[in-house]
């Protein structure tokens, strides 16, 4: 009995260490924010300790490389709510390492993509909308009277919800992952989870393509013909989806990443100079 207790305590301590890791690393997720894949390296940094732990054995190096590369994919989520995705992904990685035969690694990427959209939508509007306006509205009132409490209060009001959401996000993400995934996996229901995550993930990416690539064309002839209006009558957001499909095609053709990046940057500048595209 007492042995069980000490064991439980040790597990609890170990889990707490993991939660803190997810916590701080979720906050640090934007340190290498880049246009191409945004917070992907931040997510890799967050999950790296988990991967290092499960693939400690030198003979697992190929699995470790595959896992590291899996988390290089595009990722973008509010840092505070991202801890949930990080905790869940970490527990999925652990499951995968335990049952490599009947756990599809792609389900991890699918779950990540399906969660980042809704969690950043809710997270951004809560933290950058509600909390910020409330905190600084109050802060301004104090500051205008020359009271130092203004900025201090504003910071505290922002800190408390951010702290709570990140901490419980990490904890719930990890424990939910552990409890439900084991159950689902043993019941052979992972296919269904994969399917649901795939549908949600793809629809979210589709929506992101339509809302996060602000490109239009300024091409026109005289004042009557504007190409963008004509395109809009065919289908709005034709340029963003066309570009994405073009990039997809380049990837399928196995074009070198360096070339694609060069096409994006030089092509973007040229298209702007020639008056074809505008952001």
């Amino acid at each position: 009995m007492s042995e069980d207790k000490t064991k439980n305590k040790a597990v609890k301590k170990e889990n707490n260490k993991k939660y803190w890791q997810f916590f701080w690393r979720s906050w640090a997720i934007q340190a290498s924010w880049n246009y191409e894949r945004q917070m992907n390296l931040g997510f890799l940094y967050g999950i790296a300790p988990t991967l290092n732990r499960i693939y400690k054995d030198p003979k697992d190096i190929d699995k470790k490389k595959a896992a590291y590369k899996r988390h290089l994919a595009f990722y973008n989520c509010t840092p505070q709510t991202s801890s949930f995705v990080l905790g869940l992904s970490a527990s999925m990685e652990e499951q995968l390492a335990k049952n490599p035969d009947d756990f599809d690694p792609e389900s991890i990427s699918a779950v990540k993509s399906s969660l980042m959209g809704p969690l950043s939508g809710i997270g951004d509007s809560f933290f950058q909308g509600t909390v910020k306006v409330l905190a600084f509205g109050l802060g301004i009132n104090f500051a205008q009277k020359g009271n130092i409490l203004g900025p201090i209060l504003a910071l505290l009001i922002c800190l408390v919800p951010a702290w709570l959401v990140t901490w419980y996000g990490a904890k719930w993400g990890y424990t939910a992952g552990n409890q439900f995934l084991t159950k689902l996996n043993s019941e052979g229901a992972m296919d269904r989870v994969m399917f649901i995550a795939g549908v949600v993930g793809l629809m979210v990416i589709g929506s992101m393509v339509a809302s996060m690539i602000p490109l239009t064309t300024p091409l026109h002839m005289g004042t009557t013909f504007k190409l963008q209006s004509t395109l809009n009558t065919i289908m709005p957001k034709l340029i963003p989806v066309g570009l994405t499909m073009f990039m997809y095609w380049l990837i399928q053709k196995k074009v070198n990443t360096g070339w694609i990046l060069a096409i994006c940057i030089i092509g973007g500048i040229l298209a702007s100079v020639l008056g074809i595209l505008k952001a």
Binding site: Y35, F74, I213
Partner: peptide, 17 residues
């Protein structure tokens, strides 16, 4: 403009998996 084109590549990479 180039900074708006780059995410299209990021999305395409995600789609390719």
């Amino acid at each position: 403009v180039a900074s708006a084109v780059l995410p299209a590549y990021g999305f395409a990479l995600l789609l390719s998996t």
